[in-house]
Design a protein around this nucleic acid. Structure first.
Lengths: 156, 156
DNA sequence: CGAATGTCAGATAAACTGATATGT
DNA sequence: CACATATCAGTTTATCTGACATTC
C-alpha cells in the first residue's frame, strides 16, 4: 500500500482548490447573470462570438471546449431570442457563420457591466504579475491534461 | 461605453483559463474513473469521508461546497453499493456519521491508483514551489469570491 | 420556539452519445 | 469515398430549490 506515502490532505490538492475556485466563480457569475436572463455558457458564447465573429458552430464549439451539439444548443437559445444571428442558408459548405445582433451587443455590454465587479473582486488580492503567473500555471495544467487525453484516445 | 477600455481577449481571461483547466481535469478524471463505476463527485466524497470520517451529511456538504441535498444523493449512491456506511439510527441529533466500509477503502485505493497518473501529468511542468504558489492563487480567488457571495446575500 | 439537520420530490443546467443528413 | 459540418433526439451528470419532518 504505497498510497500512504504520497497521500496529501484535500486542502493541499490542486484539483480540489481548482474545483472550489471554479464553483465559486460559476455561482457568482450565475447569480449576477440571472437578472439578465443569461446562463454562464450563454454569456461565454456571446463573448466568444463578439471576439471571433463569423465562425461556424464547429469552430465555436472548439473554442469553448464543448461538443458541437452542446454549442448548437446554446446558439439556438441565443438565436431564438435574437441575440445572435446566422444566415438561414449556409454561406459555404454547411457552415452558418454567427454574429451578434444589435440586441446581442447591448446584452453583452450589460453582462460585462454585471460581471465586472466579480472579476475585480476575484483578482483583488493579486497584482498584475500574479495574474500573469496564474494564467501561465492554468495554461500549463490545461496543456498537460490535453496531451493526457490524446494519449488516452490513441491508447483505445 | 467604457467597456472597450478594459476589454481583454478571452485568452487573457483568468475565468476562461480556469474553466478550461477544470473541464480538462474533470474529463480526464471521469474517463479514468468510469471503469471503476465511479463519478467524480463520488470519488471526491470517498476521499473526503476517508480523510474526515464520522462527519454528518451537512458537514460533508460544506466540505465539498454543495448543498446537503446534493451530498445526500452522492452518499445514497455510495451507500447502496456498500462503499460507505451510516448507522440507521442517528447517533446524536439527526446526524448519521459516515465512514468507509472495507470495500469503500479498497475502491478508494483503486481510484487513487487510477488518478495518480493524471495528477502527475497535470503538474508535470510545475515545480513544488510553483504548485504551492498556484494553491495560494486559487485560495485567494476562492476566498475573495466567497466574500462576494456573502455580500450578494446580505444585499438581498 | 429557533436553529441545525436529514431527506423526499421535482426542476434546472449543462453537458454528453448516437444517428442522420448534407456539402466539398 | 473520406471528411467536416449541422442538427435532431434522447440520455446522463451534477447540481439546485422547495417542502417537510425531526431533534437539540
Amino acid at each position: 500500500m504505497r498510497q500512504g506515502a504520497r497521500l496529501q490532505p484535500l486542502n493541499r490538492s490542486v484539483g480540489y482548490a481548482l474545483k472550489q475556485a471554479t464553483t465559486a466563480l460559476h455561482n457568482a457569475m450565475a447569480t449576477s447573470l440571472r437578472p439578465l436572463g443569461l446562463t454562464v455558457p450563454q454569456y461565454s458564447c456571446l463573448e466568444l462570438v463578439s471576439q471571433k465573429p463569423e465562425q461556424s458552430n464547429a469552430q465555436l464549439a472548439r473554442g469553448m471546449f464543448v461538443t458541437p451539439q452542446s454549442m448548437n444548443d446554446v446558439l439556438r437559445g441565443l438565436q431564438s431570442r435574437e441575440l445572435v444571428e446566422r444566415p438561414d442558408e449556409p454561406a459555404v459548405g454547411r457552415a452558418r457563420p454567427t454574429k451578434l445582433t444589435a440586441a446581442g451587443q447591448a446584452q453583452l455590454a450589460r453582462a460585462r457591466d454585471a460581471l465586472a465587479p466579480i472579476e475585480q473582486r476575484m483578482l483583488a488580492k493579486l497584482g498584475v504579475a500574479d495574474q500573469e503567473q496564474l494564467l501561465v500555471y492554468l495554461r500549463s495544467i490545461t496543456d498537460s491534461l490535453e496531451h493526457c487525453a490524446e494519449d488516452a484516445d490513441s491508447a483505445v
